[in-house]
Design a protein around this nucleic acid. Sequence first.
DNA 1: AACGCCGATGACAACGCTGCCATCATAACC
DNA 2: GGTTATGATGGCAGCGTTGTCATCGGCGTT
Lengths: 350, 350
Amino acid sequence: MKPTSPERPENHKPASIYDVAKRAGVSIKTVSRVVNRQSNVSDATREKVMEAVEALSYRPNIFARGLASERSFLIGLLYDNPSAGYIAAMQVGVLTRCREEGYHLIVESLDAANPNLGRQVHSLVTESSLHGVILTPPLCDTQAVIDALNRANCPFVRIAPEKHLPGASDVRIDDFKAAYDMTAYLIGLGHRRIGFIKGHPGHGAAQARFAGYRSALEHAGLPLEEELCVQGFFSYQSGLEAGEKLLTLKNRPTAIFAGNDDMAAAVLACSQRYNLKIPHDLSVAGFDDSLVAQVVSPRLTTCRQPIREMAEAAVSMLIQRTATDAPVERQFEHELVVRESTVPPPGAIG
Amino acid sequence: MKPTSPERPENHKPASIYDVAKRAGVSIKTVSRVVNRQSNVSDATREKVMEAVEALSYRPNIFARGLASERSFLIGLLYDNPSAGYIAAMQVGVLTRCREEGYHLIVESLDAANPNLGRQVHSLVTESSLHGVILTPPLCDTQAVIDALNRANCPFVRIAPEKHLPGASDVRIDDFKAAYDMTAYLIGLGHRRIGFIKGHPGHGAAQARFAGYRSALEHAGLPLEEELCVQGFFSYQSGLEAGEKLLTLKNRPTAIFAGNDDMAAAVLACSQRYNLKIPHDLSVAGFDDSLVAQVVSPRLTTCRQPIREMAEAAVSMLIQRTATDAPVERQFEHELVVRESTVPPPGAIG
DNA sequence: AACGCCGATGACAACGCTGCCATCATAACC
DNA sequence: GGTTATGATGGCAGCGTTGTCATCGGCGTT
């Protein structure tokens, strides 16, 4: 008696559905039913088959499956280099759900400015007949991508898109309200001159955040000052430049709210040059609660969005075909994370 | 005359090889030959076929291909949550080469401690008969993964593995030398008491770096002091704890070399508590040149490894089957990146 | 002129699975 | 008891491609 079961072939050809069928003494069709959790299989048969599947470590071949049916068990994740942390978190969430459901993930990094974008997406989708695609910003607002997906009749879910599209499914937080909340928080601390660093103009959430900022000011009866609103592009570098502009104003703001953490971190770096102590001389707030927010000193007050949960939700929508049957918009809650980078303005009471 | 060519069906069924064959007036087999760049096709025929392929935006179906041939055009990237920046850079490099070669990327995030690891990997590989797999640390040193891959007869390339395995292909930098160089640089600045924060014990590169540090000390005739070498785990949190230990020593080091940037950033944060000015009171060096290294203040002196290039090389090895035919070890050059976090020790001349 | 060779091309099976339909036994109905 | 519904199962075609082998013509050789 050898310790390893003799019928388990240790060579490298994986077991096929035929092997399982033979071992279980049923037809391949029945094996298929069991594996796909279909009904109309007796418990006894199901058990026999399961046993054989286990014993042979049988896994249905993804290609054969994809060829024979409409279901590819493949989800696509398309992105265009936003921050590494953002994508990483997203990917973890996506993979979690995929694993649970037996799906696989194909990722593709695209360039939103590439004129061939549409063709690239179309190729990807038709080649591998993806079950569905997840679009992260800024791709979710890129018409060429949407068109290609529609042309290929491929379901997709957009994460944090600029505006709702008829017939499209979205997952998002309320960027407007989140930015509103953060701004209101700063105002509540006593700040009256609050600088804002906008995100990439092509990024929908960036605009919503700016709108939230303006709305909060208005609500508090504070004027919106042109010079306090500078353009950034979500990158650290652009934050450096934006910070430079804001800190060299004759009438400097007492707080700066940046469209994301990377830019806020840049403001921190920038303020050193002007010998400004954070948060004593200047409060700084970011957005995203990425790793940087916790690593810089002082740690950043920021706004956390549940990226992983959002990613998981997107996959679920795709798998359940919710996305296609009845387009949904799912909104998640954000959370204000107050850390050391924000305090009342200099000279304030308390 | 409609502007869009009438023979191009705008419905969502992608063109198949039959459509192309019919349009080009040849057999499907000839189309297959052209698409796969095989020889024995006349130039005239090749051109006709190419024209048809273009016109119909034909792309060979990945499933049919995978089923009919041994080639799956699928590369797997396996990782276990190292730093987001590391994986992101890796992924970009991998995707670049994949795109160029018409391959697709399937990613899977695994847990190195999961007892089911072997089974998971085996499933993935047999299901989708991957062309090859790329293993990042610490997975590249996980026996269960290696075994599963070997059992499935699946080629793989390991990035920065601990030690060479007979018959395995590796891509790496010389971590030993890199750490040696960094340590020597610090010694050159005049430092005599240099703390070291080790990386995760299960991570091969971490050990090589520690060895490099020790060797440089020895070379300079400096003693290796136990209390100056503390254990970390590559995480920010572990860096915080390690920094705490080092900074509370009665005889504090004048420089700290951390096994990666995250931990070095933690030391920066930690030193604030003890009112130490970096780099004036303490020099700090990291490893990886990740985003954090540039974002913290002062910016970190660190060691850059060409992650993207390494990833691209790994894919190339897989595609050319170099990995299987004759296992290779490719070594890339590291680069010392000197920034503001390191200066001569306090009291040094100059 | 007959032969063999080679490059170009096509016919056809096979890849492993699922969808559709047929079959059969058993249970529920009048 | 005969008929119909219902659950369980299997047979078989077909998914779009590639591998194998056959075919066909033209060309160089004897």
